[in-house]
């Protein structure tokens, strides 16, 4: 279901005007959550449309976040004279590691934000889907990947900043990114990218590619016996989701001023799936709505009772899965609901 035109326009106008409507603190939250919603849109594509449940989207989020953060750490440093990011000096590193030299150029770093997670997702997806691994096995493998990634980041203190991650950024390409005005610009960039991603995915799902992706979800073997190869559709969807997560991670890093292993590991990766489950995995806008709702709720609950949030998250997930399989979006009339829900609704009517 696509939202009606007036509603779409209203959301667009409100979103674009937000920097002048809400407080700086609220804007910073909204910006972060919109960055998250790029991840959610990716999950919507792979899980909702492709039936591929990944519990490791934090990895791609982290790759994008770290790609940008590594550059931000190098801004303003005199690299030719042996300057190094602060944490490296503390860790006793004597020369800038080769890996970091790729991130000296700001614009190339932006390319990496899209390319590194995308290429990694493509390679990983191809490797796994080619062996016809799917369903719960795929979910488990991706969860293991998230665990391994976070562990690796923590263990390579001198290269990644370890447990504390990367923080203390000041400029990007010479522009101050800490001022009030910069926060608005970063918000508007985030908002535009979310809008662009939303419309691009809406188009993609309307193409033959979208049909083939759904066909693959419905009956991978069936379409194989119709002479189609399902592999490229799954790999491409997973790649797009990976790149979207990477962009989300980079934007989050800009908004929050930090990226660390705690933001990319197993728990965050599962939370990402919960956003989409709550929003409704049958519709694109549901992914964005779910992300905003769950995260604002998280902000409220964890500032009131910090220890309560994980229980609230778990309860929310159980409730949605048992009583609202179509998520928030599913409460509105939706022709693409999973048949199970349709049946249940018909029974209620009878």
């Amino acid at each position: 279901m696509k939202p009606a035109l007036p509603i779409t326009l209203l959301v667009l106008v409100l979103g674009a005007a937000a920097p002048w409507l809400i407080s700086a603190y609220e804007l910073s939250l909204l910006g972060r959550f919109l960055a998250f919603s790029l991840v959610a849109l990716g999950i919507m594509l792979t899980w909702g449309e492709g039936g591929i449940l990944s519990l490791g989207q934090g990895v791609f989020f982290g790759l994008g976040g770290y790609a940008l953060a590594m550059h931000l750490k190098l801004e303003g440093l005199d690299i030719a004279n042996g300057d190094m990011p602060d944490f490296m000096t503390w860790s006793g590193v004597s020369a800038l590691p080769t890996l970091w030299r790729f991130f000296v150029n700001p614009w190339l770093s932006l390319v990496y934000v899209v390319l590194v997670p995308g290429l990694f997702a493509a390679f990983f997806g191809w490797l796994v889907f080619r062996r016809r691994i799917g369903g719960v096995y795929f979910a488990l493998i991706t969860q293991a990947l998230a665990l391994a990634f976070a562990t690796l980041l923590v263990s390579q203190q001198a290269l990644t900043g370890g447990f504390n991650g990367l923080t203390n950024f000041s400029t990007f390409a010479g522009y101050d990114i800490t001022s009030q005005g910069a926060a608005r610009v970063i918000y508007l960039i985030t908002f535009m990218l979310v809008v662009a991603a939303y419309f691009a995915l809406r188009w993609l799902l309307a193409t033959r590619f979208g049909t083939m992706l759904r066909a693959t979800r419905d009956g991978e073997n069936r379409i194989r016996f119709l002479g189609h190869n399902p592999l490229p559709y799954k790999v491409v969807a997973f790649t797009i989701a990976g790149s979207l997560s990477g962009i989300g991670g980079a934007l989050f890093t800009l908004h929050a001023g930090v990226i660390s292993p705690a933001l990319v590991g197993v728990v965050p990766s599962i939370e990402m799936v919960v956003w989409v489950a709550v929003g409704g995995r049958g519709v694109l806008w549901g992914a964005i709505a779910g992300t905003l709702l769950v995260n604002f709720a998280k902000d409220e609950i964890s500032s009131a009772l910090p220890s309560l949030w994980l229980y609230a998250l778990g309860a929310l997930f159980v409730l949605v899965v048992s009583f609202l399989p179509g998520g928030i979006a599913g409460m509105f009339s939706n022709p693409r609901l999973p048949p199970r829900l349709l049946r249940r609704r018909q029974e209620v009517v009878e």
Binding site: A215, D218, P339
Partner: peptide, 13 residues
């Protein structure tokens, strides 16, 4: 091309 015993349609399409 083969049609299977149980209907092999693509349900959500």
């Amino acid at each position: 091309c083969r049609k299977f015993q149980t209907p092999g349609i693509l349900p959500s399409l």
